[in-house]
């Protein structure tokens, strides 16, 4: 059985259909990138898959231990420091105080946050740092499945590559499944086993492409050529062309 299965999921906001008849399965240890134009319903699908939104129709089946979510906005508690924010989701799990401190230090170093950064409140952190705290928080619970909603969008190119290698790498190593929403086809081509394109007009999934080779080990130049080829020759990506073509170059 797949780690996560969406079966015939449909969702409408106030009568406006955003998702229609979406069926998608993700295996344990698999990273699936979800792309689509802005407003296509990527975040909505992710929230449904994570159990935060009940779909109008269809069902979601989960066969994994615990999951974590990195939201499109960092969603940190303003009144808690970075370390306390990470601790907030840990506290109820069976970890004692020193275990928590250790775990926080471990995930903070994974996302390049210094000990000093950890004592700061979210208002004192940059947008990219806040995003990294949110990533660290997700990694801290040792999840078996992670939902990422454009987690690296506020990071510069160099840091983004490093975060992909570290965060996604750590999860793949542990055999965790991933649903990864992104605007960036290059990111998808580098990270994912499989790429799913969401239809712009709420008609569900437009199609999918399987990527050969292992995530993170692919040659950058080949990924780039691949993305160019999609954008020029593949009708599946025609709708993305306007909004993503420029970014991918």
């Amino acid at each position: 059985m797949s780690a996560l299965s969406l079966v015939g999921v449909k969702h409408a906001y106030f009568g406006q259909t955003v998702l229609d008849d979406v069926s998608l399965s993700i295996e344990a240890g698999e990273c699936v990138a979800l792309v689509g134009p802005s407003g296509a319903g990527k975040s909505t699908l992710l929230h449904i898959a994570a159990g935060l939104v009940t779909p109008s129709e269809g069902r979601v089946e989960r066969a994994y231990g615990r999951h974590a979510v990195v939201f499109q906005d960092p969603r940190l508690l303003d009144w808690k420091t970075a370390a306390e924010n990470i601790a907030y989701v840990l506290r109820h799990r069976d970890l004692n105080r020193s275990g928590r401190v250790e775990r926080i230090a471990e995930v903070a170093s994974l996302v390049d946050l210094s000990v000093e950064d950890l004592t700061k409140f979210p208002v004192e952190l940059s947008g990219g740092m806040r995003q990294r705290v949110a990533i660290a928080r997700a990694l801290a619970v040792k999840p078996d499945f992670v939902f990422f909603d454009e987690p690296f969008s506020a990071l510069d190119v160099g840091l983004r590559l490093r975060m992909q290698d570290l965060a996604v790498g750590a999860l793949l190593e542990r055999g965790a499944g991933m649903m990864f929403v992104t605007h960036d086809l290059m990111e998808a081509a580098r990270l994912a086993h499989r790429l799913v394109v969401l239809d712009a007009d709420g008609r569900g999934l437009a199609g999918e492409r399987r990527l050969e080779g292992e995530p993170l080990q692919r040659d950058i130049a080949l990924c780039f050529a691949r993305v160019q080829d999609w954008l020029v020759n593949d009708p599946l990506f025609a709708g993305l062309n306007d909004s993503h073509g420029r970014r991918a170059q």
């Binding site: 929230h47 994570a50 159990g51 935060l52 615990r66 999951h67 974590a68 979510v69 939201f71 906005d73 969603r75 508690l77 009144w79 907030y88 989701v89 506290r91 109820h92 928080r137 619970v141 939902f147």
Partner: peptide, 24 residues
């Protein structure tokens, strides 16, 4: 409410959500 969703996604129970987020 987005923070409530976040806490729910991480499996934080209703009591801790009410006191830690709502009350706070």
């Amino acid at each position: 409410r987005r923070l409530d969703d976040m806490a729910r996604a991480f499996g934080v129970g209703p009591a801790r959500r009410a006191f830690g987020l709502g009350l706070r």
